[in-house]
Simulated assay, not measured.
Amino acid sequence: MSDVVLDLRGIEKTYNKGTPGAVSVLSGVDLRVKAGEVVAMVAPSGAGKSTLLHIAGLLDTADAGQVLLSGREMVGLGDAGRTTARRREVGFVYQFHHLLPEFTAAENIVLPQLANAVPRAAAEARAAELLASVGLTERAGHRPSQLSGGEQQRVAFCRALANEPALLLADEPTGNLDPATSDTVFGALMALVRDTGLSALIATHNMDLAARMDRVVRLDAGRIVQER
Rank of each mutant, 00 (worst) to 15 (best):
A132M: 08
D79R: 15
F92H: 13
R86C: 13
Q113P: 11
R139Y: 06
R120Q: 08
V217K: 03
V42C: 03
T137I: 10
G141E: 06
G149T: 08
V193W: 02
L189V: 09
E89I: 14
I202C: 02
G21K: 12
G71R: 10
A85L: 09
L58G: 00
S133K: 11
L100F: 12
R194N: 03
K49E: 01
V5N: 02
A160P: 07
L8A: 01
G91A: 13
R139M: 07
P119K: 05
D60N: 05
S199E: 02
P112V: 11
A122E: 15
S27K: 15
C158A: 13
L147Q: 09
A35V: 09
V118S: 11
S199V: 07
L52T: 00
A22L: 11
T137F: 04
P144Y: 13
V193Y: 03
V90H: 09
H142G: 11
L114F: 06
M41D: 00
V134Y: 10
A43W: 04
S199M: 06
A62Q: 02
T19Q: 11
L52W: 00
K49S: 04
L177M: 06
A203I: 02
V67L: 03
A47R: 07
G57I: 00
T137H: 08
E102D: 14
G222M: 03
V38N: 02
R143N: 08
V33P: 01
D178Q: 13
Q95T: 15
E129N: 10
L201F: 02
N176L: 12
L219D: 00
P165S: 05
S145T: 14
A106M: 13
M41C: 03
G76V: 06
R82W: 14
P165N: 04
V75H: 04
P112A: 10
L130A: 06
V4S: 11
S24W: 09
G65V: 06
E138T: 14
D7I: 05
M207A: 09
R32N: 14
L136D: 05
A162C: 07
T61K: 11
H98N: 14
Q95C: 13
R32Y: 06
P173V: 12
E73N: 09
E102L: 14
V25P: 06
V155T: 12
A117M: 15
L177P: 03
E73D: 13
R82K: 15
L161R: 04
R212D: 05
A40W: 00
Y15I: 02
A64C: 03
G65M: 05
